[in-house]
């Protein structure tokens, strides 16, 4: 790094600090926000400062917001406001799975040709597209009926933080997630299943990818955030 670079880096860091602290006037703030939207280095510098400073807020006396705020959030999200039923989470909502299955199937139609020509499976099987809620799919996983191989292929570029790995899980109808193996962000994976695909996938709720230490979760259960999920679509 030459002196000019060092100087520029220092100036950027100061601007990022002022953006995060909030003291920049609107025009300068908006300009830097716009630059951050297309320059990851700038976005990262601002985020680092936001996180550095945010801890200072822990001394504040909490104030409960009025109930109408949460009701408004649920309304904006189109979620039920009725008292929650036991087990009313995602996994038990038929509508969600219907939507997820339709999305998976639509993605399959788009991708079908390339998947099946690249790796012709036995007739019939399972397909799962993995995505964050409301976002485009990032991986598609497929297994032929009765096969012990699950193929995972990337659909969109993803960034994995350094020193972290992606791990794929099956979410059985009941009980804990079952580790299936590590997935490479660029290459995907060809995973060998402990049981034939039908036993594992036919009744399962879906697949999920979590962020884990290198080599995968040390506990046998997801330890990092769940990044993407998808419903299983029999085909």
């Amino acid at each position: 790094m030459n002196l000019a670079d060092a100087g520029r880096r220092r100036r950027l860091d100061l601007l990022a600090a002022e953006h995060a602290l909030g003291t920049l006037p609107w025009r300068a703030r908006a300009r830097l926000t716009a630059v951050a939207a297309r320059e990851p280095v700038v976005a990262a510098a601002i985020e680092d400062w936001q996180w550095r400073l945010a801890g200072l807020a822990e001394g504040l006396t909490p104030i409960a917001p009025p109930d109408r705020v949460y009701a408004a959030i649920l309304a904006r999200l189109g979620l039920v406001t009725a008292p929650e039923r036991r087990g009313a989470g995602l996994w038990n909502r038929l509508g969600f799975w219907r939507a997820a299955a339709i999305a998976s199937f639509a993605a399959l139609l788009v991708l079908g040709v390339s998947i099946w020509t690249a790796a012709p499976p036995a007739p019939g099987g399972y397909v799962v597209t993995l995505a964050a809620p409301g976002a485009s799919p990032v991986f598609v996983a497929s297994a032929g009926r009765g096969e012990r191989t699950l193929r995972v292929r990337p659909l969109a570029p993803v960034t994995v933080p350094p020193g972290r790995a992606l791990e794929l899980w099956a979410l059985p109808a009941s009980g804990n997630p079952i580790a299936l193996g590590l997935v490479d962000a660029e290459a995907g994976a060809v995973l060998t299943l402990a049981t034939p695909s039908d036993a594992l996938l036919a009744g399962a709720k879906g697949l999920a990818v979590s962020l884990e230490p290198p080599g995968g979760s040390p506990t046998g259960q997801p330890t990092g955030p769940i990044l993407w999920t998808g419903a299983i679509v029999p085909i």
């Binding site: 504040l60 409960a64 705020v69 949460y70 989470g89 995602l90 769940i226």
Partner: peptide, 25 residues
């Protein structure tokens, strides 16, 4: 993590535990 899975109960609990702090901010 559970909110990322669209678990509404986890989201409600997250809101209950964090909103007074964030509202104060």
């Amino acid at each position: 993590a559970r909110t990322a899975l669209a678990d509404q109960r986890a989201f409600a609990e997250l809101y209950r535990r964090t909103s007074p702090h964030l509202y104060a901010v």
